[in-house]
Each structure stands twice: as structure tokens, then as C-alpha cells.
Write a protein that binds this DNA or RNA. Structure first.
Length: 803
RNA sequence: GCCGGUGUGGCGGAAUUGGCAGACGCACGUGACUCAAAAUCACGCGGAGACAAUCCGUGCCGGUUCGAGUCCGGCCACCGGCACCA
């Protein structure tokens, strides 16, 4: 090694050394820290500099924690089931198991370039039999507890993936995976009762140190609302229609009712002369795709010929059918108050239905409405609620209804149960058997895993049947209960199944008796810091929370939230847009590592912008970081043997550097950490020039602080400084506050709030002296003016107000 | 439509509780070294101005304050989430 910064040689040397002597050893005397990346899907496309960002950040955090004296769990693995592998397999006639294996090798090689302190002995792969055995085991427990059930209903169907989708995968009516428009298909599918956990999933968000944005997305998705169920009798019928409303305060304003086309009474209720029209309408609605149904803002509907009775005033109100009412929310039927709801207003206008105003804005006269009034105000035209504010009436109405036996207070959630089965090959088989005698039978634990058969053809079908259904030798089995002939469940699990609990498996990845031992879980879990993209806000993160709560309830784990802290790193864009192969704007880390070294790229990834914000990639920006590291190298090389005694100046620089870097790193403001390094290093270089050298402790401190960011450089220079062990066996420095005290401070002077000049004063100087000094300094500017006010903010600023 | 976020030089971005706007870096310019170039080092780098004093300047308009990028009110633009959930 010489005075040139030969990153290639340094990085090769230390990578080999760390391989032999890992810097992060388990040591139960130390407190634990579990720092986790969202594990990747092993795509054939490999990694770009955007992927590096999160991995570098989590590695910096992990190494920082090592230096702070923690034993750190920082694992890596593969979320390897899923459609891309399967589609690739179909297209290229390569079995997904083979292409997945090849992709993993490639991505793993790329990950090694980051030099993260992953513990590869804990590597997991969701497609390993020894792993998905436990994915199936969890499903079996859910089935036993009644949380997994089969149901036939209209489901989101992706015609391109030939597969059903969960609600979370079909937002905006578009397939989350491929972007195709989702249609509805009536199918019998396996569901998980995530709605049973709606309240806890909502409430426990409070416990989490997560970005507010993600918590908000989850709570909106769960969508809790408070309201009432109200019963409406039907004239000339014994039927009672229950509606759900969040506005019981407007009950007197209900002038019609609407049932969804799928409502159980929709067709029955129609009078003879309306029957045909109602049936036609319901049929038409059933053929519409969810996209059409959502995007059709123009209201449609049909009258049943029947009337409901308003329970409070006995008014007869017509009952209509319309597809703007959703069958699977609330009761599938609503009371309509056109005066105070936009949708009801539009419907009333279109079909010429009466509008009765029951709320008026406070202090205004009642006047004809040209649009629905949805704001606050005073209740009118409502004998039981007149004069109340909206809030009061909302609160009291449900109680009044309850007393009269007309309804009850209730809550509703937007969250729906999770459609859990998929009609594809490359996923975990659902461990159930259908027996003609015993019905559905769960596969006993000692027969798990139910292995995915190795077959050559697994084309998806249009029928809603899994390709596994065509494999007779696999489908036909014996019933675990009665031993008679039976058939296997042929659907597989969604990709989210394996990722909903993988963070538990890392604690004890080779256990074949349990998904992880109690001791291992106790030692490491839950995850202290979870780093990944925001795109999983209502998918993976919601599912993982649900699984965790379930496993907590059945006593497998003793915590009920998986990720204490979540950090969403921003995307890295190139030329203003997300990197993608089709746009041809992918920046590969491989050449950058070759040209500048791993350390430079690591540091630049963190310097490019605030880590939580999307940033634009600029290739030439990395030059600045590389120059900086070369400067560090030269500086340390030039001064390592001088060994001066510490001076007041050097102590001040060193201790402010420790304070600043630590503070910024704790705030995960990595871009300002890097700028801080540059600033303080320059100060040291200048001081060294001035003093003819610098003391060893300054350099040592700089190297320890740099170590999480540029581990190879720090490690090499650390050994050049004459230290025996690794820089990571050093301790993260603490600032000596007594060295931060200065004798003199610079005070900016303002006149009328405008900066004029600086003065330097003794730190303990009092107000009067400072004001006088300020006036002296500003004498020519103050000449002939009247001083109105003198402001001195201690150690901050002086402002003289003049006229 | 509803909800959230963000607007600061040519660019990425700094700026504790309101207290010197533009740290740090990129790009650019000038100089030193060199036969020359690269690398490196030094200096400059928001706009206007006789490139002096000074004035203007953090999306726009207004307010509070001795003092506003920061707080308040009203807009505008862009990005993200949800979208007939009664």
C-alpha cells in the first residue's frame, strides 16, 4: 500500500479478511438489534443503483449498531415464489425452480459487491421445502381456528395472469402485477378472515414507529366508520330492510332507498310490473367489470315498485336498485338523503325524486339546494333532533333508535377478507384434501410439506382452475382421516404467504421442529428496523401484521407487531423517471464499483439526497465522493506518524465532529452526515497544515465514524494507524462536552432585521456590553438615526431597530 | 372528488425552538503546476448594480413579528395514496 488510494486492492483484501473473521459475532452479553431489509424477489434483471440505496442504508445502520456494542441480526433471503418466474418458465421452457436458482446466484453475487454484513448462514428461500413446510403449517393452524374458509363470490380476476386477486392487489381496478384491467368472476375460493383483526390492525398502528404516511394508508385501507344500522319496514310485505348509515342524524331527510343489485331482496321485492326491468338491471350489473362499475359516474337504477317506511316519521319512500350501492359493504342497502349526500343528490335529480333538507348551515336561512350540503350545521325538519348540531345529532340518534327498537349503533370497516388462493403453479400448495366422506380435511403436520410436484407443463387455464388440477398423479391421494380416496386442493397460496412471516424464520432458519424456537425468537424478534420501499404499505406490511397477530394469539410468539420501526427509502430516478429496462435508463452498480470502488458508491448512495425522498441519479456526482475519499487517504497517510499532542483546536474539531455526525446519523439524515464528513475533514486538513500535523486521536475518531459508511477504507487506514484488531471492535466515540466550550463567539448584527456585519465577543459577555459593541461597530450606520429598540438573543443575534 | 406530501441557484440539496438563506457536492469559470493534457491545489460562482455602495431574492398574494424558507390566512403548480365504502 502506498500513498495512492488503491480502492480495488483494499476492498479485495478486507472482504477476504471479513470472510475469515466476521466483524459481527453473536455475543449474548450484548443487547440485540434486528435490522432487516425487505427481502428481494430474485429477478433475472439483477440490481441497479436504486436497489443499492436501501441495502446500503440498512448496512450502515447495522454496522453503526455493531460499533455501539450491539449484537446485530442482519440477514438476507429470497422471496422466490411468484408469477414472473413462472411466466418466464412457460415462455422459455425452463422450470421455475431452475431459473429461480440461477437468478438467486446472480443477485447474490451482486449483493456481495455491497459488502454488507449479511449473515449468509441464515439465508432463506420461500420456495425451499423446509421453508414452505412452515408456511403451510401456519395455514393449517388458521384453518383449524376457522380463519380460513371457502366461499363462492364474485372476485377480482386478472385475465392476463389468469388468476384471482386480493383487493389489495387490485386497487384502481388494475392488476398490481401486470397492470391489466381486472374483471369479476364468480368463483369458489379460499379466504382468510383478516377482517377479524381489523380493529387490532387499526388500533395497534399507534404503537409503531412508522412513517405517518404508511400508517395513514393502512388506516384508510381498514376504513373504520361509525354509524348506525336502521330497520325499514316494507309496505305490503313482511320484509325488513336494514341499512347502514354514518348519518343517522339525517334520517328524516331519507326520501328513498337503494339496494345493491346483489342484495338478497333485490329481485324478490319487485312488484309484478317491475319484475322484468329489475331482473334485467341486475343481470346487466353482474356482467359489468369492476372498472366499468367504478368509472361509470352517471347514475343508473331501476324502481322496484315498492315502498319502505321511514321509521321516524312513517313516510313512504320508494325502493330502488342501483349499482352505486356495493353489495359487500355495510348491509348492501342504504337510505338516501339527497339533500346531504352528493351521490344521493345526483340519483334524485336523475330520477326526479324528492329532496328534503334536514341540515342548514349555522346562521343561514333555509334555501333551495343546488347541490348536496354535506357540511356542518343545525338540524331542521326533524322533530326528534331539531336544533341540535350535526355532531350532537350524530351522537344521539343511534341511542334514540336503539331505545325505540328501530336500529342500533354500529361500526363498519372497508377492509375485506383476504382472497388467499391462486390458480397458478409456482406457489405453496394449500395443505388441504377433499374427501367425499369427510369433507375438507387439513393435511396433518407430520405429512407437511405438501410438495409442489415437479412437472413439465403448468400452463394457467381460463377456467379458474389451477394447473395443478390437471396432474392426476398428484391430485389423487388418500384422505388423512379415513384413508379412502380423496383429492388434493389444487390452488396455491399467493406470493404474500411466504413473506408474511419470513422475518421470524431468520431467527432460527434451520429448525425442522418449529417455525423457529422460542429461545431464538426471544433473542432476536421483533424486528427493530425494517428498511424497504413504500409500495408494500397495504400489501406485505398489512399481511405480515395480520400473521404476527395470529401467531401471537396461538402462542407461537410473544409479541404482536412484527416491525417496530419502518423506514421507507426513496426511489432513485434517472432522467426524471423510475429506472426500467424499457426506458433504458438503468444505472448498473457494477461499472461504478469497478471505476470508483464499493466505498465511494456506498457513500454516494447516501449523499445523493435525503434517504426517505426520491432522488435523481447523477453519474458525475460520485466523482465528488471519490475525491473526498482520496483526500482522506492522503491526509491520513501524511499525518499518521506525526503523533502530535492534542491541541485545543484539534479537540474542538474532533468533539464537534462526533456530536454532529452522531446526531445526524441518529436522525438517519445520511446526506448531511456525508457533508459533515467533508466539512470536518477539511477542517482537520487545514489545522494539520497550520500545526504541521495532527494528533492521532483525531484521525482514529474520523476512521471509526467513517467505518459504517466506507468500511474497507476505514479498516485499512485503521490498521495503517497501527491498531491490531478491526475498526469494528472499536467503540463508537462519545463527545467530551467540556471540549466543545469556546471562549469567543461570532454574533451577527442586524439593523431593522437586515444583516449588516459580524462581531466577535467573549462567550460570557453580557447583554449590555454586546449591545454597546454592536452600536460601536454600526456607528456610521446609526449616525443621525433614532434607536427605537435593541434586541439581543443570547449567543444568537443583535437587532437594532431605528427610525 | 377526498386525503397526504413537496415547491429554495444551472443541478442534487443545507439551514435546532422564527435569528447571517444557499452548508456540502456536481457542473462551470479563473489561476498555479505542466512543453501540453489529465490529475491535483488555490480562488470565484443567486439576480440586478459604474460589478462600488446598495437593492432584490426560498411557487404566488396577504398577515403576524424587531426579524419569516420556517408561523397564520387565501391561492397556484407538481407528485403520491384512495376513489360511488352511504
Amino acid at each position: 500500500m502506498n500513498s495512492r488510494y488503491d480502492f480495488a486492492a483494499i476492498e479485495k483484501k478486507w472482504r477476504a479478511e471479513w470472510e475469515k473473521n466476521p466483524i459481527n459475532k453473536e455475543d449474548d452479553k450484548k443487547p440485540k438489534y434486528y435490522c432487516l431489509d425487505m427481502f428481494p424477489y430474485p429477478s433475472g434483471k439483477g440490481l441497479h443503483v436504486g436497489h443499492w440505496r436501501g441495502y446500503v442504508l440498512s448496512d450502515v445502520i447495522s454496522r453503526y449498531k455493531v460499533l455501539q456494542g450491539y449484537q446485530v441480526l442482519h440477514p438476507m433471503g429470497w422471496d422466490a415464489f411468484g408469477l414472473p418466474a413462472e411466466n418466464y418458465a412457460i415462455k422459455n421452457n425452463v422450470h421455475p425452480e431452475i431459473s429461480t436458482k440461477a437468478n438467486i446466484e446472480n443477485v447474490k453475487r451482486q449483493l456481495h459487491e455491497i459488502s454488507a454484513i449479511y449473515d449468509w448462514s441464515r439465508e432463506i428461500n420461500t420456495t425451499d421445502k423446509s421453508y414452505y413446510k412452515w408456511t403451510q403449517w401456519i395455514f393449517a393452524r388458521m384453518y383449524e381456528k376457522g380463519l380460513a374458509y371457502e366461499k363462492e363470490m364474485p372476485l377480482n380476476w386478472c385475465p392476463s395472469c389468469k388468476c384471482v386477486l386480493a383487493n389489495e392487489e387490485a386497487t384502481n381496478g388494475v392488476c398490481e402485477r401486470c397492470g391489466s384491467q381486472v374483471t369479476k368472476k364468480n368463483l369458489r375460493q379460499w379466504m382468510l378472515k383478516i377482517t377479524a383483526y381489523a380493529e387490532r390492525l387499526l388500533k395497534d398502528l399507534d404503537k409503531l414507529d412508522w412513517p405517518e404516511k404508511v400508517k395513514k394508508m393502512q388506516s384508510d385501507w381498514i376504513g373504520k366508520s361509525y354509524g348506525a344500522e336502521v330497520e325499514f319496514k316494507v309496505k305490503d310485505s313482511d320484509k325488513v330492510i336494514t341499512v347502514y348509515t354514518t348519518r343517522p342524524d339525517t334520517l328524516y331527510g331519507a326520501t328513498f332507498m337503494v339496494l345493491s343489485p346483489e342484495h338478497k331482496y333485490a329481485k324478490e321485492l319487485a312488484t309484478n310490473e317491475n319484475k322484468k326491468a329489475v331482473e334485467d338491471y341486475c343481470y346487466l350489473a353482474s356482467t359489468k367489470s369492476s372498472v366499468d362499475r367504478m368509472s361509470d359516474k352517471e347514475k343508473t337504477g331501476v324502481f322496484t315498485g315498492r315502498y319502505g317506511i321511514n321509521p321516524l316519521n312513517g313516510a313512504l319512500i320508494p325502493i330502488w336498485i342501483s349499482d352505486y350501492v356495493l353489495a359487500d359493504y355495510g348491509t348492501g342497502a342504504i337510505m338516501c338523503v339527497p339533500a346531504h349526500d352528493d351521490r344521493d343528490f345526483a340519483f334524485a335529480k336523475k330520477f326526479n325524486l324528492p329532496i328534503v333538507q334536514v341540515i342548514k348551515p349555522e346562521g343561514e336561512e333555509e334555501k333551495e339546494l343546488t347541490e348536496a350540503y354535506t357540511g356542518n350545521g343545525i338540524v331542521i325538519n326533524s322533530p326528534l333532533f331539531n336544533g341540535m348540531t350535526v355532531a350532537e345529532a350524530k351522537e344521539k340518534a343511534p341511542h334514540i333508535l336503539e331505545e325505540k327498537g328501530l336500529g342500533k349503533k354500529t361500526v363498519n370497516y372497508k377492509l375485506r377478507d383476504w382472497v388467499f388462493s391462486r390458480q397458478r403453479y409456482w406457489g405453496e400448495p394449500i395443505p388441504l384434501v377433499h374427501c367425499p366422506h369427510c369433507g375438507t380435511v387439513v393435511v396433518p403436520d407430520n405429512q407437511l410439506p405438501v410438495e409442489l410436484p415437479m412437472v413439465e407443463s403448468y400452463q394457467p387455464t381460463d377456467t379458474g382452475e389451477s394447473p395443478l388440477a390437471a396432474i392426476d398423479s398428484w391430485v389423487n391421494t388418500t384422505c388423512p382421516k379415513c384413508g379412502g380416496p380423496a383429492k388434493r386442493e389444487t390452488n396455491t397460496m399467493p406470493q404474500w404467504a411466504g413473506s408474511s412471516w419470513y422475518f421470524l424464520r431468520y431467527t432460527d432458519p434451520h429448525n425442522d421442529k418449529e417455525l423457529a424456537s422460542k429461545e431464538a425468537l426471544k433473542k432476536w424478534a421483533p424486528v427493530d428496523m425494517y428498511v424497504g420501499g413504500v409500495e408494500h404499505a397495504v400489501l406485505h406490511l398489512l399481511y405480515a401484521r395480520f400473521y404476527t397477530k395470529f401467531l401471537y394469539d396461538i402462542g407461537v410468539i410473544d409479541f404482536d407487531e412484527p416491525f417496530i420501526r419502518l423506514f421507507n427509502q426513496g426511489m432513485i430516478n434517472k432522467d426524471g423517471s423510475k429506472m426500467s429496462k424499457s426506458k433504458g435508463n438503468i444505472v448498473s452498480p457494477d461499472e461504478l464499483v469497478k471505476k470508483y470502488g464499493c466505498d465511494s458508491l456506498r457513500m454516494y448512495e447516501l449523499f445523493v439526497g435525503p434517504p426517505e425522498v426520491d432522488s435523481e441519479w447523477d453519474d458525475s456526482g460520485i466523482d465528488g465522493v471519490f475525491r473526498y475519499l482520496s483526500r482522506v487517504w492522503k491526509f491520513v497517510y501524511a499525518n499518521k506518524d506525526k503523533n502530535l499532542t492534542p491541541t485545543k483546536e484539534s479537540e474542538f474539531i474532533k468533539n464537534t465532529m462526533i456530536t454532529q455526525i452522531t446526531q445526524r446519523l441518529n436522525a438517519l439524515s445520511t446526506n448531511t452526515v456525508v457533508s459533515g464528513f467533508m466539512e470536518y475533514t477539511t477542517k482537520m486538513i487545514d489545522l494539520a497544515k497550520e500545526q504541521g500535523g495532527i494528533d492521532k486521536s483525531c484521525i482514529d475518531t474520523l476512521l471509526i465514524l467513517l467505518a459504517p459508511f466506507t468500511p474497507h477504507l476505514a479498516e485499512e487506514l485503521w490498521s495503517q494507524m497501527g491498531h491490531k484488531g478491526s475498526v469494528f471492535s472499536a467503540k463508537w466515540p462519545e463527545a467530551d462536552k467540556s471540549k466543545l466550550v469556546v471562549d469567543e463567539i461570532t454574533i451577527p448584527l442586524q439593523i431593522n432585521g437586515k444583516f449588516r456585519e459580524n462581531i466577535v465577543v467573549d462567550t460570557d459577555c453580557d447583554k449590555e456590553t454586546i449591545i454597546n459593541k454592536a452600536k460601536e461597530a454600526l456607528a456610521t450606520r446609526l449616525e443621525g438615526k433614532t434607536i427605537v429598540k435593541e434586541i439581543y438573543v443570547p449567543k444568537k443575534i443583535v437587532n437594532i431597530v431605528i427610525k
